[in-house]
Design a protein around this nucleic acid. Structure first.
Lengths: 398, 398
DNA sequence: ATACATAGTCTATATCTTGAAAAAAGTCAC
DNA sequence: GTGACTTTTTTCAAGATATAGACTATGTAT
């Protein structure tokens, strides 16, 4: 219950450095003058800290801007090639590895297909490791400049060096992915649930920008959510928070693939929706069939929208977000055709006060943003703690 | 998205002062030596800061303890009469005002009954204000030592100086309680939802102690929850987070008094349970009737337990707490007789991983802890920011 | 050229935390 | 009792930081 946390005078600098760097990263090219307003720091401190950061090559000058009859402003920005981040997306059908600079430009990419149901741990691990080697080689980035690797996986990821994974539908039970990967790569590692990484991608670059309290609802074959509380992904005690898909929406209702009954996923997950509509598909035809179903006017779709609205209403009642982002491939398809109805059903099932302050919007990044989001884990860490080079400037002249 | 937040070198002291004071408050009598371990601060800093706090009379010495063959430790503790906190409980049937010292000993109390349905704003405001005057007078505490007043009310409370309240079942729609009270009392004011204040009471002094991620589920006539994320009450964008009672557990199910259908409250709220059992009561006989029903072996109770288990499972799936505290008068009655079954039903409706790391326990403070919790709002603020007396010690000798 | 405006840096100052040394306040063996 | 030893707490000097305000840099306007 010890909430505040401060220590030495040195932590101050580290903290202010992080504040400034973060402001610069998200505000884009900015002058020192503007940074004083953005960070609340004094002009002198901004000057000092930016001086440090420039000396460390973390940031760079980015042109001049005339000011209204005075000395022009020097724009500063994060040096996009100071370091690079690798993002990995482990999905049902593929392992995708991408390498980004700090501006999140994709510089290299490597993809492996997985056989349906073929999720053997050692196969996936091998794909990830060789993918990492491949993107580093392809991009020509020196390994010393790789800041880390972020990995988005299905299921529940325990925090900690082991990064133990529990993913029932994926066939992984207590897999220490962190330990396995660390044995094969020297880069700092960040493993997280794929829904959470995608949520962070939407928050940084997509439909979540600018909000501090948001929920990113992801609807694909399965259903998940990423909860953003005060700008930070909410994880709970063991990082499994946000398991929206298996909350009960109907006591004793339909069987769910998790083994339970009446789960939300059993009503709005694409697999379940197609099953309810009596359409038989495999993973390769699922998306096309679902797209067709959505526009068919089937009563199953109406029912799905009703359940989705109620599910979103529950999220709003419990989390009181300012924004709900509907994403995932199935969610986007549903939303493109039915957003108005979805909102209406959410309103019907929600308390008026929290509903009135929440906006429901569609995701903007598409379903392929898991790797991007995974890479943001690395960047987030970078923004929080660039080690100061502690070069004492101006050693006493004598 | 600017997460870290630091500023000048003076904030350091303020922060460390708060860290130390908080550690001292929750650890009880503690020596300086132990405080270095508890806070992570150096012995020198502990000495300096405790010196300040002693000079300000915020803390006091509390005896000696022999150490194994060395200088004995001087125990320190928060001075319980440094200041006093007033807690107010605005309930369906009463307005209760209590005054506590910092050890949360109740020094005075004042209670007013409300006529059923008689919740006129001006009546309640008058009761609160005269209650404040009464407890200050009765206790003999000088007004200058009253640190503030915390108020727990039904419904949604918007943060801010207005403290706008929206409480449908209470008949209050957009009542600026903060503004109304501030006009009648000079004390600093903290208004919050009653479920949240009770949750904080359970966290500080009850079944929640020691956990950082918890949910306090409150079941009375109505149903609410208080979510504790990383030691802090989670409020969301507009402080309405935690409206568990009106999440949907059955699409198109029973009518709820909120106007919606299929709300959890319509199945497990005491009023709804009695109604389902065909028992007709008013507010005065409600609790006795419910107590009798719980032990009667009625199938309605079994059904209620089933819904409660599913509702708790949803909380666990979404929030991943390490602890769930079941409270509220109806929740306690149910739990005393059915806790095993409740846990079993929760397990059946929950993913195994998050369920296995969550313990479900009964509240320990009883249903009357709203005022206590409201007073903790004041103490929390006190622990966060005791203004340093800034007496520069040792002015340069000359 | 001179006045004015805006951006950014430098200097002096007041604080802060800390490690090390010193002081305080005991116990214990003899 | 006394000196050695232990443990707790305070003192002191050193190193680091942010800030206000003076100062410099670099423009435009007239």
């Amino acid at each position: 219950m010890v909430r505040p946390e401060r220590r030495t005078v040195r932590d101050l600098r580290r903290g202010n450095r992080a504040v400034l760097l973060r402001a610069l990263y998200f505000a884009g090219p900015t002058s020192r003058h503007e940074l004083t307003a953005l960070t609340g720091l004094s002009a002198a401190t901004v000057s000092n800290v930016t001086g440090d950061l420039l000396a460390d090559n973390v940031i760079a000058e980015a042109g001049l801007v005339d000011s209204d009859g005075g000395r022009p402003r020097v724009l500063l920005r994060v040096n996009p090639t100071y370091g690079f981040a690798i993002g990995v997306d482990v999905g049902e059908t593929h392992v995708r590895v991408e390498l980004f600079d700090l501006d999140m430009n994709e510089l290299a990419k490597s993809e492996f297909a997985l056989r349906p149901g073929g999720h053997e741990v050692d196969v996936v691990v091998r794909h990830i490791l060789s993918g990492i080697d491949a993107v580093v080689a392809d991009s020509g980035v020196p390994p010393s400049k790789v800041l880390g690797v972020g990995v988005g996986v299905p299921g529940i990821v325990e925090r900690g060096p082991e990064a133990m994974i529990h993913a029932q539908t994926f066939g992984w039970d207590s897999v220490p992915l962190g330990a396995l990967l660390r044995a094969g790569t020297p880069f700092p590692l960040h493993v997280d649930n794929g829904a959470k990484t995608m949520g962070q991608a939407e928050m940084w670059f997509g439909a979540g920008r600018g909000s501090r309290h948001a929920v990113i609802a992801l609807i694909g074959s399965g259903v998940g959510a990423s909860i953003i509380a005060d700008g930070v992904t909410y994880r709970g005690a063991n990082s499994s928070a946000g398991e929206w898909g298996h909350t009960k929406i109907a006591i004793g209702g339909r069987d769910c693939r998790c083994g339970g009954r009446g789960c939300l996923e059993a009503y709005i997950g694409a697999e379940a929706v197609l099953e309810r509509a009596g359409i038989d598909v495999d993973t390769s035809t699922e998306q096309a069939a679902f797209a067709e179903l959505v526009t068919s006017g089937s009563p199953v779709v109406d029912e799905t929208v009703e359940f989705l609205g109620a599910g979103l209403a529950n999220l709003i009642n419990l989390f009181n977000p300012e924004r709900i982002v509907v994403g995932g491939w199935a969610g986007l398809l549903l939303g493109q055709h039915q957003l108005t109805t979805i909102k209406q059903k959410a309103a019907e099932n929600c308390l008026t006060q929290p509903y009135s302050t929440a906006s429901i919007v569609l995701g903007r990044l598409g379903p392929d943003a898991v790797a991007l989001g995974a890479a943001t884990l690395v960047v987030d860490e970078f923004l929080l703690s660039t080690t100061s080079s502690s070069a004492s400037r101006e050693p006493a002249v004598s």
